[in-house]
Design a binder for these strands. Sequence first.
DNA 1: GTTTAATCGAGACGGTACGTCTCGTCTTCTT
DNA 2: AAGAAGACGAGACGTACCGTCTCGATTAAAC
Lengths: 200, 200, 200, 200
Amino acid sequence: MTQERPRGRPRSPEADRAILDAAEEVLLRDGYAGLSMEKVAAEAGVGKPTVYRRWVSKAALVGDVAKRGYRAAAPEVAIPRPGPGDAARAVAHWFRSHTEAMTDPRNRALVLALTAAAAESPQDAESLYRAHTLEQHRAIVDLLRAGMDSGEFRTDADPDAVVDALIGSTLYLLLTGGAAAAPQRAEGLARALLDGIRAS
Amino acid sequence: MTQERPRGRPRSPEADRAILDAAEEVLLRDGYAGLSMEKVAAEAGVGKPTVYRRWVSKAALVGDVAKRGYRAAAPEVAIPRPGPGDAARAVAHWFRSHTEAMTDPRNRALVLALTAAAAESPQDAESLYRAHTLEQHRAIVDLLRAGMDSGEFRTDADPDAVVDALIGSTLYLLLTGGAAAAPQRAEGLARALLDGIRAS
Amino acid sequence: MTQERPRGRPRSPEADRAILDAAEEVLLRDGYAGLSMEKVAAEAGVGKPTVYRRWVSKAALVGDVAKRGYRAAAPEVAIPRPGPGDAARAVAHWFRSHTEAMTDPRNRALVLALTAAAAESPQDAESLYRAHTLEQHRAIVDLLRAGMDSGEFRTDADPDAVVDALIGSTLYLLLTGGAAAAPQRAEGLARALLDGIRAS
Amino acid sequence: MTQERPRGRPRSPEADRAILDAAEEVLLRDGYAGLSMEKVAAEAGVGKPTVYRRWVSKAALVGDVAKRGYRAAAPEVAIPRPGPGDAARAVAHWFRSHTEAMTDPRNRALVLALTAAAAESPQDAESLYRAHTLEQHRAIVDLLRAGMDSGEFRTDADPDAVVDALIGSTLYLLLTGGAAAAPQRAEGLARALLDGIRAS
DNA sequence: GTTTAATCGAGACGGTACGTCTCGTCTTCTT
DNA sequence: AAGAAGACGAGACGTACCGTCTCGATTAAAC
């Protein structure tokens, strides 16, 4: 057994939470560029090494803040399960709530921060960014595949491409400051894409 | 007349170019996080104030570097003009070459840097990022509108949403490190989207 | 009776020795500035609290290391006892061997460390430094007093001043890196001083 | 010609002074162990790099503080010049005023700090410490040599040893907290030493 | 034999300071 | 007036130690 009993004083879970809370607050207040490990530590009432012991870099910390923030918003963005009925309807519904969640200023700031972190250190991009969308990405792809199996969608469609377009367009609008237009465009996009892969 | 005669020593155009060259080199070598105004000035053989006299911030400088880099790649990405024929074909062709251009490591690095700059300072995001895609965005929207006018596409489609999806999906793949998969997915996406808005 | 019976697990004498050994080794290797309680604990294979349980500070630990080191060199520096004969000869002999012992690189490093500790925290200086010389200081003063009683030395001389000069000059040479010159100068100094207080 | 014209903005002499002032104040208030480059910079209203640009280490800074402090006290400690008359009297007079100056709490603190610095980094000891006493050391040695030439002192005496004893004993008393006893002992020591080398 | 209590190692804790780097501004002399 | 050079005040970087604390695990004397 890899029992691996931990030695020494265990890490304080309160410190974990205090740091994440502080980081989120700083992020929302000062943005990604305005976030420093020093400020986070001070705000959390924690020593700098206590922060570095848990997160090796600003990027990693921001990643976890965004992850937690997204998880908190998760209930609003129900991940649909393949059912007997209308796959297109389910996808459209998910996309609508996903877009709405992303339009929330709080989530928008977190996504921006996450993108900054990912773009700054490309080697972390995969783990940082995709980790947050992977679960949903897969769920929607599954949904589309089920639709293909049931004859609702064309079998030569590329479900990954469709999902990339859905998530990517929202990200693009967020980044370019066009978040306000997102909900309307989301409708049009979902309709066009799903019509485009619908079996004739 | 407000002739606006400049006084004193005129600004050296060589310094402009030297700074942009140095910034691009540093960007490709060390990434956005590894770029400092100090390093750029040193690499360009120029004093720091000379850099700050032209670009107020790292973000602005990176923006111009990306703009110049994109312009250099522009010949490969011909912006299509509305013509009599097949609008869908024209859009698909543009998207293919756009995706290919973005897949080039050099361009990828510049886009990543641009994204980092935009995400770091949201207030600059609009000017920074959209400036580079606006021209193309408009051209493709025009193309789609022409297609709608000619009866090729449905009139209730949202051309902006379509273009957001095209550009956004590529950006998303770039950011998440999935650039390699881009060309294949681009095909599927273009087909699905254009089919989706095609007049029945 | 305040019998003061200890309860619980007794302190490990091995830890005591391991810590002193480690501290001495670190001191000789890295000097006083390079000695940290952390390093000592690690080198001794001991937990930090085990060190702090015994020595409240770096200065106290270094003091004990120096004391032990000096004690080890003690056999070479025989402390003279007042005898019937030549007091001046006895003092000169003690001073010669004292100087020689101090010239040894090992002892020199320990004295330097001790001085650093004393100078850093003046309130500990008395206890730290003088503790190591007090015994000898007294012995030599006694020797001089005996010489005064026996008529060998002038009765108006200040034996403390003489001993301060003997010990202080050696310390001064050690501190200023002139240790190499110490033995020769010691001869001249002892002669001058003892001649100076000799009864005419 | 090694004309060596300095380029760029010259170093601010005000910063130099502000740093030295701050360092001296911190030293007198908190002692050597309580002095940090950070505190000095803050107290001087100066950035940390501005301190490090001038002094590579705490030891070097403390050295210059002590040097300046000693220079300020120099008028009180007149360095005697060889004259026609009584060399012994001149040496005794110098030693008395030197001891008195060292007994002043301000100077005592500086000497302690200097000693701590020297003892902490033995490789700097020579330059750090002796620099402050070298001038006087030489002057007194010259005085003694003149006395030997004039027949006042024995020609087989070691003037360096005598001066080491004078300076060293004061240092020893300072370090061990016996500064209060210094003046009285100084009298006895000077008499004994000078009598000891006097030509019979 | 069981308590009981102080020890042990390990290592996290809130902190302070380190010495370096970059920021964007300034001051100097040269062109 | 713009150039390069480089110092400036400011402050973040990531690391090393400080001295204290919390762990589970010995270890021995007291019961």
